[in-house]
Design a binder for these strands. Structure first.
Lengths: 238, 238
DNA sequence: TAAGTCTATAATGTATACTGTTTGGATTCA
DNA sequence: TGAATCCAAACAGTATACATTATAGACTTA
């Protein structure tokens, strides 16, 4: 439970935005241990700035569901099986439609990026490199989401996908699951290439269902989590 | 452009939460003029507290899309026709499903509240009282949304519904539109009473489509808005 | 030895002060 | 009289200091 995490400043925007970006990337990359505490004053000291911008950034992440604020530091939320099911339900409703949009709007450059991400995912699955697989997966999703012209739709999806991603770190390390996911990605990619919105919709539906089933099948380890770190989240229903 | 808005403290939680609630309610009730500036130090002075909790609350509202932060105070966002279309698309995807959930989970007390809100809406429509109609409309939605057990789903819906509500203030004052909306509410209510999830799904789909069509039909006034107050929103894509 | 209480500490919540930037108005010059 | 530049005020961003609260650990008592 030491603090191996190193934050560094990225020169863009005001301090709050910089810290926000850094911490969010850290979370998305799965570099945060489940029980790890994020304390504003510590991060501030590390970055050589004051508490306030850090605090603002952390609170923004709380509002967006990436963190929970306890009275004793900010930590990753501990999602219950119900939480994950809820998130998957929303994703089931939104992502197929978004994929259909992307099938129409993706350009050649986007398809190329997707192909690269897909290859990377396949290579990672073959090599058993969970971290790389994880990263390729995110890159793939971010790419097609970027082509969706309805920003509110794509941002909502990105947020919820990120939330489960934190918990799915373990699931995504599972070799058979990786194979299923890669197959799903390829199917979706091919629908994109053909600019077939209907196929994209259907395959994305399938993909999400598969992902959820796979997750639920491997869920018992999740329960341990909840027992071991039963933090009462303070985030108001806001 | 005077400041007729009076904020008062509500005794619950920390200061930030109190301010947040107050300001959000003010927005939801449509008590905020489109060009109105919300300045943290002013509100703080009015409440007899310091800037920081107010600032936190306002920034949270910015993150949630209720406000935009300019370099010169916080104001209501000016939604374009595209923005509204985007929001309606997300609502079309989410609300029917949520209504189906509510049809199963609404209890007697909830149905009673819905009936009251419906009656109020009908009375307001008959009397031509736009403010009351507005309020009854919100009460109706908040009630059935409260019965949805998937909190992320219901909160996402509430947020997006609130966003368009700000712009729809004018639309909702339109008598024929009020009649259409009341009819839709009654149809949905009856599906709830019968605990018919399928009917609730279908009627909600219809309801949203109607609302969107009505809005778009009366949209020209919206364009004026954009011309007159073309504030470049500073909110990062966060 | 175990349980309960109390205290010390760590971390958030709040307040105030200062800085930097932007905008709007006023003044001056052409 | 109009346009351009400069100055002042307003407001967000940041920093630092103080208050509050909850938890963990220790100590006391049964």
């Amino acid at each position: 439970m030491a603090e191996p995490i190193e934050f560094k400043r990225v020169g863009e925007g005001n301090l709050r935005a910089q810290v926000y970006q850094q911490v969010r990337l850290t979370i998305q990359r799965g570099e945060l241990a489940p029980g790890q505490k994020l304390v504003d004053v510590d991060i501030a000291a590390q970055l050589g700035i004051s508490r306030m911008p850090v605090r603002d950034a952390l609170m923004q992440l709380v509002h967006e569901g990436y963190l929970v604020g306890t009275t004793r530091g900010f930590t990753l939320p501990t999602l219950t099986a119900t939480d994950v099911a809820d998130i998957f339900e929303v994703r089931r409703l939104l992502e197929p439609r978004a994929a259909a949009h992307a099938a129409r709007t993706l350009d050649a450059a986007g398809l190329k990026t997707l192909a690269a991400a897909l290859q990377e995912a396949e290579a990672a699955a073959a090599a058993g490199d969970a971290a790389l697989f994880f990263q390729a997966n995110s890159a793939f999703r971010n790419c097609w989401l970027g082509a969706v012209e309805n920003d509110r739709l794509s941002q909502t999806i990105a947020r919820f996908a990120d939330h489960v991603l934190v918990v799915r770190l373990k699931t995504l390390s599972h070799q058979p699951t990786q194979a299923v996911i890669v197959a799903g990605m390829r199917a979706i990619y091919e629908a994109f290439v053909k600019r077939d919105a209907v196929a994209a919709y259907d395959r994305m539906t399938h993909f999400i269902q598969n992902a959820e089933e796979r997750f639920m099948k491997l869920s018992p380890p999740l329960q341990q989590f909840n027992d071991e770190a039963a933090i009462i989240p303070r985030q108001g229903k806001s």
